[in-house]
């Protein structure tokens, strides 16, 4: 399925943002000797498409500099921060975005920078003490507003928010980014069952099906296929797309609702755009350099592909 609504200029813009996401995450990983790099490879086009074309979020006037951490929520700290401001103001007609696997935080931060929502210098605070730009982001981290680092809880929380918005008569949609590993979790299926039962067509889910998880390939750890059929039987409207093809990614989001929650299974490559990562197979979950030579190799790639940015 192709979208005929998108002009070449928009596609180029999304492709450039996706390239920028990979570059920023790669830079970070080289600088820090490791990180969640393959997630950037697999999901760069998904997040760039969501932010630049699919979601109707509130605007952010100027890129926001992430504020310092100001404490966890409690009765004594009612003004604790939320990272939702990076996704613009909330309004009944506007969309909302929820990142479910917080392990993708670095990729999300890079996406926020590439889409003009977060100041580029903000990434220098990544994983630093007293910063909100955390490694496994929390609800005070840029672009986030729920606690989703414990996998499987993000979808249920987003579903609760979407149900509440429907009760209030809000027309904006609720978008959730998920990882394929989360479909091994019982709670995910409880949430799908509920969304199907209550015909929550105000929810749209983009899944990065990169086929890899902490222990190795999903097929070897615990198979989730046939994922489309499983989801359909739970009452979802499912599309399988090439997760690196902008047109394919966007098309399902433009369709008229048929009353079912939308799930777009984005089949992706965990070393897309950084082909030399292939040698890390099947351990893509967290790239860590064992030798300086490994680091140099990726550094040379960065120079060649993106120009030295240090």
């Amino acid at each position: 399925m192709k979208s005929d609504m998108l002009d070449t200029l928009s596609i180029t813009k999304i492709q450039q943002a996706a390239k920028g996401i990979r570059r920023r995450v790669l830079e970070y990983v080289i600088k820090n000797n490791g990180g969640y790099l393959s997630q950037a490879c697999s999901s760069a086009e998904i997040l760039a498409s969501l932010y630049l074309e699919i979601m109707n979020l509130g605007n952010v006037e100027l890129p926001i500099m992430p504020p310092a951490f100001s404490g966890v929520p409690s009765q004594n700290n009612p003004d604790y921060l939320t990272g939702a401001m990076f996704n613009g103001q909330k309004a009944p007609h506007l969309d909302r975005f929820f990142l479910s696997p917080s392990q993708y935080s670095l990729v999300l931060y890079a996406a926020l920078i590439e889409t003009g929502r977060m100041a580029a210098e903000g990434l220098e605070q990544f994983n630093k003490d007293g910063s909100t730009v955390e490694m496994i982001g929390a609800e005070h981290s840029p672009g986030m507003e729920i606690m989703s680092g414990s996998l499987g809880q993000g979808l249920s929380q987003a579903a609760g928010i979407a149900y509440a918005r429907r009760l209030k008569g809000e027309t904006g949609r609720t978008w959730v980014f998920m990882s394929d590993g989360e479909f091994q979790i019982g709670q995910t299926w409880e949430a799908m069952q509920t969304m199907g039962f209550y015909k929550m067509d105000n929810v749209g889910i983009y899944v990065d099906v990169n086929g890899y998880q902490c222990d190795g390939s999903t097929a070897s750890v615990m198979s989730i296929e046939p994922l489309d059929k499983r989801l359909e039987s739970f009452g979802a409207r499912v599309f399988k797309v090439n997760g690196h093809d902008i047109d394919e990614l966007i098309a399902p989001s433009k369709l008229q609702s048929d009353g079912r929650p939308l799930v777009v299974l984005c089949y992706t490559n965990p070393y897309q755009g950084i082909e030399i990562l292939k040698e890390y197979a099947p351990k893509f979950h967290y790239i860590r350099f064992k030798t300086e030579a490994e680091r140099q190799k990726l550094s040379a790639f960065l120079n060649e592909a993106h120009g030295n940015t240090f």
Partner: peptide, 11 residues
């Protein structure tokens, strides 16, 4: 978790 989501929206 769904209850948490509802509460975040004022319910």
């Amino acid at each position: 978790s769904f209850a948490g989501g509802l509460a975040r929206e004022g319910f």
